[in-house]
Write a protein that binds this DNA or RNA. Sequence first.
DNA 1: ATTGGTGCAAATCCTTTGCAATAGC
DNA 2: GCTATTGCAAAGGATTTGCACCAAT
Lengths: 151, 151
Amino acid sequence: MVVHQRPTDVPEHRDQDLITLLRARGQRVTSQRLVILRELRRRGRHATAEEIYHAVRRDLPGTSTPTVYATLDLLVDLGLARKIDAGLGASLYDPRTEPHQHMVCRRCGRIEDVDGELDARALLRTASGQGFTADRVELVLHGVCATCLTT
Amino acid sequence: MVVHQRPTDVPEHRDQDLITLLRARGQRVTSQRLVILRELRRRGRHATAEEIYHAVRRDLPGTSTPTVYATLDLLVDLGLARKIDAGLGASLYDPRTEPHQHMVCRRCGRIEDVDGELDARALLRTASGQGFTADRVELVLHGVCATCLTT
DNA sequence: ATTGGTGCAAATCCTTTGCAATAGC
DNA sequence: GCTATTGCAAAGGATTTGCACCAAT
């Protein structure tokens, strides 16, 4: 059986956005950056820096933790990933940048996506539809305060 | 000038809820627990464990960090405080248990309350009324997932 | 008198830093 | 060749652990 690959199924074709963004900033396109982004996208969901680190070291053995952290933060900065603080020890890096939020199971620690806009009422309804019983909502706004805006 | 104190202005009178809750669980009423709760309430807003630690050590010199952490988590467990992960290094412990959320200034790190229910749209409006320009909303639901519920 | 709580020191976990070596441009 | 990136080792900050002692019940 022949599997027809669409262009985006070929990893190299998916890197264009990263390459373009880096070039636009005068930053370098390195194999670490490409491999880390590919790994994050291959997984398709939030992952810890450590998970990415171990996976990437199979493709690119010498890779270090500082590089993984720096690169993941760079991807966030470029808008290719989101950083999520789910209140567990480690931060999560998510290749899905569309509006969606997260629910954390207190018992098993599993973290699942909840799609939908930021209406918390609707979000709770969706979560419940996925069988998740939420009893706590943590909402944090990030931005710039009045004082800093005028300084 | 004579200042008339209402009963709740006398620290000892505010401890009743903690004492009652501890007794109901068969847990001990210790001076550390009382002093830590009083300090959190005296401040009236979210504080880090470290801030509480330093303040408490003035009243009760020998107090240790493990005790402060354990006690703050106990207060959360008893429903007398909330634990907030604002995505900065340290967790915050908040004596305000009513529904309210937080906004974090990316520049100065200041964390302010945003009162109101969990309708994110209304919350963003309130934040904007307080001069805060929010460009990122982080919402995490905590609870129990479908799998764990049936196990 | 019991044993839950505490203090101390040390460990752990996640993340960042300093600096020399390397690899993109 | 220039200098941004990298790897290594080590530091850093927040929180937790192990264990002997103390103090609330």
